[in-house]
Design a protein around this nucleic acid. Structure first.
Lengths: 152, 152
DNA sequence: TGCCAATAGTTAGCTGCGCTAACTAAAATA
DNA sequence: TATTTTAGTTAGCGCAGCTAACTATTGGCA
């Protein structure tokens, strides 16, 4: 702080900084908007996200899942427990290394992922459809960058 | 489910849907990545975001603040209480309508907003600086769209 | 004028999700 | 064989969302 930059041309120092800031704010508001769509199904954002990794990332250990979701092991352990209680995933012990547990999706899990994601994302999809072709191109071009900034 | 679409042309039905999906996932991961940067300052994402609205949106009622942050009144009431306890905002009663309370930032609040945002967003800023000029242009072009999808 | 409905905000109490610390069990290693 | 390392769980904390129910004030209206 203190370099408040009294009157320079740009008032906010750095274009990259402005970009980061707006991205940050937009991400917060986007998720808050979507959060309300999914409570009906009992599939919160973290559960949906984890389930998605399990469905598409095959049987996966708790540790790897935690890393993929950028969360600590105990957090993922509890998320998996919740998903298991809902019948969406099952734990499969490793045959040779008995410390390891792999998580895989049940048929119900796969089904609910589609349904939950649909409900949650439909509102977004609808808005995206309203974009012009050029706008949609711009959004498409930026998504990989956005993903990279998100740390994958 | 089941319409896993064995071999059709597109495999995933709708381009807008794919876009929505990736945007959703990226937003989740972006925020999780950033969340870890701010705990040091005791300024969580929701507090930082609310404080930002107060700083830039002038004195504002709790209700308007809740609406701006897409949150219910009790949630915002508590967020404001926390910010007040930290000395970052103060409540100003309305002179004529005694039901209304307006929230405004303190000097400390303004200072901490800059510092907190800086810490939180710096990691993003650094990555954005690494982008090529073309990539940065693409990101810049997409931000307004992203904001629109976020509901403002 | 005096009552009642509407509005602004708070309090109480619940759930979920993030964390660290501390534990158990199994495997790898010295 | 004894020790260390690794995988995962349990316990317990704080924060942030919500609804329901409450207080206080305002505004309308009979």
């Amino acid at each position: 702080m203190t370099h408040r930059q009294a009157s320079g041309r740009s008032r906010r120092r750095d274009p990259a900084d402005v970009l980061a800031d707006r991205l940050h704010a937009a991400a917060i508001h986007l998720l808050r908007r979507l959060r309300r769509e999914d409570d009906a199904a009992g599939l919160s954002a973290p559960r949906l996200s984890a389930l998605s990794v399990v469905v598409f990332g095959g049987p996966i250990t708790i540790g790897a899942l935690a890393a993929a979701e950028q969360v600590r092991a105990p957090t993922m352990s509890r998320l998996v427990a919740a998903l298991e209680a809902q019948g969406l995933v099952r734990r499969v012990p490793d045959r040779t290394d008995h410390r390891i547990v792999r998580v895989e999706a049940t048929t119900l899990g796969r089904a609910l992922l589609q349904a939950g994601r649909r409900r949650r994302v439909d509102v977004l999809t609808a808005d995206i459809r309203k974009l012009s072709a050029a706008e949609r191109r711009a959004l498409t071009a930026a998504i990989p960058l956005f993903e990279r900034l998100a740390g994958r």
